[in-house]
Design a protein around this nucleic acid. Structure first.
Lengths: 262, 262
DNA sequence: AGGCTCGTGTTACAAAATGTTACAGATCGA
DNA sequence: TCGATCTGTAACATTTTGTAACACGAGCCT
């Protein structure tokens, strides 16, 4: 599935206590492998033998329904780590959108190392927490947002990768196709196009070719996307607690909106 | 936010190597706390100090968008553990649908214990992998499935909790309201009602009151839900690998559907 | 270079699904 | 029992999709 430049080298024998291992260090010990655009790194249902760290390029992560519908559950960018939180088998297929360079590490051994190294353990949790946060965000998007809000959110999500401090207009590439965007956002290709057109007509966005995007008013776009503000659209942390935090240990919770009384 | 029956007792001092700790054991050392229906265990944005294991009852887990829309990202049932994979703050509000009994354990200390105990470490990963799998499943549901498919999937998801081997008709309770179901499935109350009505008219489902469900033809319902079969609808594992697994280390990946050539 | 062709992207309009609104019936707790 | 809340149904409005036609751009061939 992936072309290996050479045999793997292993710098972490046995289970000795490693002082300050991190994912960066652990994966850094492994050879770079290559995967060409359109080819898969692994398939949904495969035994999840390895975890992967992306070095360069873009992966689409997807599942296929029995009748052929495709759901893209995420994209993997450089620096992302895949496969830490799986059961025995991969939950999705990972396919290269562009040519990809990545490194692999045996999943079980990675967790064995983590048992001996608090740094690595913490690093793994950080990655998994990120995955879960992304999944939550996506559930909100898919369940509650309109087509245009989804597209706006998607653009902002990608803008975030290029750094927040960047001057307006914020520009970046979208290497994936419109079909990828549609399958990720739970829309059709046409609806994605229409939404992009509206955002362009509103002067919030412009494009150069099909994959280069400019955001001319991130703040307004954020409001449009159902987010409070561009800066808050993503970590460090979205927004402060909704109501004041209750610290009283005795029976202080408020009934929520639409509180349930049975 | 939660009523504590008494002060907590701690059976796990220091960082000594504990041979066979599990989540069950660790949480079992803590007192039962209570949270009444309609009240919250914690709020989105709170500092995530504790993890929780549900003893009895049902929680709804949700986030609120700036304009007031509510997205339920999941429900927590007895035996479920919450809060293992968070960053510093809770990603969602956890609110009791029914009266709930649960136990808490400091999150950081839980992970510290896991560093010394492979059993516990494995147990934590198992839980997190389950969370992520549920999130993936939900993303597919919200992004790709029709209203009726979503409701059918939801019923099957709940049916699974009562055990697979049960005789037809499979019966179980749905303690949550229609609004909860709607906010979980990305629909309105009315659409949920319409879908339930259609399933009843098709003879696949019947109800007794609003919260008791009977599934008369789980296999057919599964097909209807966009799943292969009821038994395969959920773990042990959904379905076999899509194509035969590739083991050749040299450049063997097949271009996927809609392969991208740039 | 010119011109073809194929995959991809865009737009318009009709069709379907879902959301809204309104109201009647059912359920549950006080 | 009552009242409040939740649920179910129907008519209508809106959003999204399906279909189809056409535009664009990269690569290929001559």
């Amino acid at each position: 599935m992936v072309y290996s430049a050479s045999a793997s080298v292993d710098h972490f024998p046995g289970a000795s206590h490693q002082a300050k291992l991190t994912l960066e260090i652990v994966f850094g010990s492994r050879v770079l492998e290559f995967c060409h655009a359109g080819h898969s790194v692994f398939w949904e249902g495969d035994v999840a033998s390895d975890a992967f760290m992306i070095g360069e390029g873009l992966l689409r992560l997807y599942r296929i329904l029995p009748d052929g519908r495709r759901a893209i559950t995420g994209f993997a960018f450089p620096g992302d780590v895949l496969g830490l939180a799986f059961h025995d088998r991969y939950l999705y297929t990972a396919e290269a959108v562009t040519d990809v360079r990545l490194r692999r590490f045996p999943r079980r051994r990675l967790h064995a190392l983590a048992t001996d190294c608090p740094y690595l353990h913490h690093d793994i949790l950080r990655v998994i927490a990120g995955e879960l946060e992304a999944a939550q965000e996506q559930m909100v998007l898919l369940g509650q947002k309109s087509a245009e809000e989804r597209v706006a959110s998607f653009l902002l999500m990608n803008a975030r990768r290029v750094g927040k401090g960047q001057a307006v207009p914020i520009s970046f590439d979208l290497p994936m196709t419109r079909l990828d965007m549609a399958d990720y956002l739970g829309l059709t290709i046409e609806t994605v196009c229409r939404a992009v057109t509206k955002l362009k007509q509103a002067g919030l966005v412009s494009m150069e070719g099909r994959h280069k995007v400019f955001l001319h008013n991130p703040a307004e776009l954020s409001r449009f996307a159902g987010l409070d503000d561009f800066e808050l659209a993503h970590p460090p942390w979205p927004k402060p607690a909704l109501p004041p935090v209750e610290t009283d240990p005795i029976e202080t919770g408020e009934p929520g909106r639409g509180g349930f009384h049975q």
